Amino acid sequence: MSAGQGSAIERQVSLRRLYGDLNSELRWQCLHHPEEDHHLRRDSSAEDDVGGAALVGFFNFIRPHAVQIAGSCELAYLRAHPEAITQFPPHRLCLLVVCEGQILDDHLYEDLKARHIAVMATPMGAKIVLARLQHYLHQELAPRQQVHGVLVDVLGVGLLLQGEAGIGKSELALELVSRGHRLVADDSVLCIREAPNVLTGHCPAPLRNFLEVRGLGIINIREFFGAAAIVRSKRIRLVVEIQDMRDMEMADIDRLQGKVDHLDILGTQLPRLCMPVSAVRNLAVLVEAAARSQYVKESGGDMLADFEAQVRLSVGEE
């Protein structure tokens, strides 16, 4: 199995799919659907919206939503100000969802049809519909990217193992699983930006449960070690770049904190630790130590600062 790092995957959701996926939950009825189906895409102008949550909302005339939720209050406003619907640009407003069992006035319905705007009705409360649509679109439209590597859950820390082909990433993952840790994905990791600075790694469906080990071939981790050895997804907290010690400039490595930089995936800066590999180094133990170190850092600890303070204290005592 082999895969390179790809570019970000652009996602879209058609209104027909939206209707079908949520029909059983929202119990809605399609009152009107234009002949040409609309497609919802992530709003790139919404800086804090990493998925599609900003596409849905109650009436907003300044930054209109593609999907407008209309409950009793919104429809009462439209009845009093029927011209207000024309303030929504047709290219922005794709769908009006009438909630709470409300009845849409005939003239408003005909106006929406003329503007090629889809109309759906549901007996559910407006806030419930809003929350469900935002959650659905956030999941479907969140930025995602396929990257090459092996993702493992070590002591609760998601580690993305990267390195040249044949460096031993899958063998290392197998050893980590045999030590009680969990595999997320081998060779190809689907990264999804769930929230600002939150990147989760998932296993593509065709590769789920499997690991390729040179000399052994394809093995089923679930069959070998049980269901507890597999996890569907994990937040990526640290990238471990495995490099051949002979190829690394050892003089460039800081002996007190290693060689650390950052890897950018989908606009998220992930800390990256370069790990030199050789026949005499136990990588599994080193990776476990890296996971513990990352956990300490995220908890507010600074082992280097503690060491330097202890050295200064010892020098002062002498």
Rank of each mutant, 00 (worst) to 15 (best):
P204A: 11
I218L: 15
S293F: 06
R214H: 13
F61S: 02
A8W: 10
Q162F: 07
H116W: 07
D264H: 11
V157I: 12
D105A: 12
I230H: 00
Y295W: 09
R42Q: 12
A229V: 01
R272E: 15
Q243L: 12
L172I: 02
E308W: 04
V285I: 11
A66L: 05
A173M: 08
A66K: 03
K113I: 11
N209R: 13
Q12F: 14
D187A: 07
V213A: 08
P271I: 06
A121G: 04
I242M: 15
Q145P: 08
R63P: 00
V277E: 03
V260L: 15
K127C: 04
R132M: 15
Y19R: 01
D106A: 13
P64L: 09
A3L: 13
R193H: 00
I236R: 02
V189I: 12
G217H: 04
L96Y: 03
V50Q: 05
C73G: 07
A290K: 00
L112P: 04
L112Y: 02
V260C: 09
R17L: 05
L161F: 14
L270Q: 06
S24W: 07
H181E: 13
L26S: 05
R16N: 08
A305G: 04
Q146E: 08
P64E: 02
R11T: 07
Y136Q: 03
S293G: 09
E171S: 08
R255W: 10
F59C: 10
R292F: 13
R272C: 15
L286G: 02
G52I: 08
V239G: 10
A289N: 01
I221R: 03
D187R: 02
G71H: 12
E194G: 00
G125M: 12
D302E: 05
V184A: 03
F61M: 05
E288C: 06
K169C: 10
A251Y: 14
T268Y: 13
N220V: 05
E110C: 00
R272V: 14
G101Q: 06
I230Q: 00
A289L: 12
